[in-house]
């Protein structure tokens, strides 16, 4: 276990280093000048030069790369060009929206997928099974931004059950906060829940087909008991992988949904930062997201290792 851990940790560090170089190089070639963006169309060249110097945009690329990385390692993410506030503070603020949203959506996804998947698997071939599978096919195929807009039309404008968007803030109370995240979370959760339901169902069916369960069944264990007592635990491995993937996807992939509901989340922060050429924000957030994905994958791998010792040697 020790060697396995070290090997994976090394891989993780190398991956992060490569990712940071890739991100930095990408942003080096992005055309556009943050100073020009801030000062607009009536700015004079000397004013622009003054602002560029103030932002620290002069200096070589190598120098700026190491400044950036060095800062990140110390937990200093730099100062946003346009907002002129520490990037770390901005990220933390946005995290208070993005993280709860991702968890909320994931929670919904799991809360729907587990019962639906188990139900479908335990009644394989029945009308219920077919119904669940049909609905999940639709869920996977719906463009979620479109679904989100239709929900706004119905639940915010027509029925006025939920706000049309925006984030109430956690100071307004847990309920107000959750209320403003509900429609976005449903929109995000729909395709994820559909995928997870399908994975849950097929994984459970696979496990139920394995010899030891057949043996148990032959010995007179009921199908229901076979599922609950033996099948579920073993069927969880692929389900866990998917949940891990979904979490990291939800954290970064909510951009479009955040735009539909004008939520001040991480995705929209990057989106706006790209258009205002606030490159330091883009760099830092993208690297952070990459780190999150790699870390989650790492955690999932470790969880495997715990569940199934045979997997430790394999990659």
């Amino acid at each position: 276990m020790g060697r396995f851990l070290i090997r994976r940790l090394l891989g993780l560090i190398v991956a992060l280093a490569v990712a940071s170089v890739v991100i930095f190089l990408c942003l080096e070639v992005v055309p556009g000048d943050p100073a020009a963006y801030m000062l607009g169309v009536n700015a004079r060249p000397d004013t622009l030069a003054a602002l560029r110097a103030e932002l620290g945009l002069d200096g070589s690329a190598v120098q700026r790369y190491f400044d950036w990385i060095g800062g990140m390692l110390r937990g200093d993410f730099g100062i946003s060009y346009t907002y002129r506030t520490p990037v770390s503070g901005m990220i933390v603020d946005r995290m208070w929206v993005s993280l709860p949203l991702a968890l909320y959506a994931l929670g919904l996804s799991v809360a729907i997928a587990f019962p639906a998947g188990i139900w479908a698997a335990s009644r394989r071939g029945s009308a219920a099974d077919l119904g669940v599978m049909g609905v999940t096919q639709l869920g996977v195929a719906v463009p979620n931004f479109w679904f989100a807009m239709l929900m706004v039309l119905l639940f915010a404008i027509k029925l006025r059950w939920f706000p049309s968007g925006g984030f109430a803030g956690w100071d307004e109370g847990l309920f107000a906060g959750l209320k403003s995240l509900t429609l976005p979370a449903i929109a995000l959760a729909l395709p994820q829940a559909s995928i997870l339901t399908r994975v849950m169902r097929s994984s459970l069916l696979d496990t139920l087909g394995e010899d030891y369960i057949r043996t148990a069944r032959a010995k007179g264990v009921s199908r229901r008991r076979a599922i609950w007592a033996h099948g579920l635990r073993n069927a969880l491995i692929p389900v866990l992988t998917i949940i891990g993937l979904q979490f990291s996807f939800l954290l970064a992939g909510a951009i479009i949904i955040e735009n539909v509901f004008y939520l001040p989340g991480l995705g929209r922060l990057v989106f706006q930062a790209i258009s205002s050429r606030d490159l330091i924000v883009v760099e830092s957030v993208v690297l952070l997201l990459v780190f999150a994905v790699i870390a989650v994958n790492f955690a999932v791998d470790m969880a495997y290792g715990l569940v199934d010792p045979r997997l430790r040697g394999r990659r």
Partner: peptide, 13 residues
């Protein structure tokens, strides 16, 4: 509220 649709929705709601 940068998005025009969201702007419409926010006034309507």
């Amino acid at each position: 509220i940068s998005d025009p649709t969201a702007a419409f929705a926010s006034v309507m709601a």
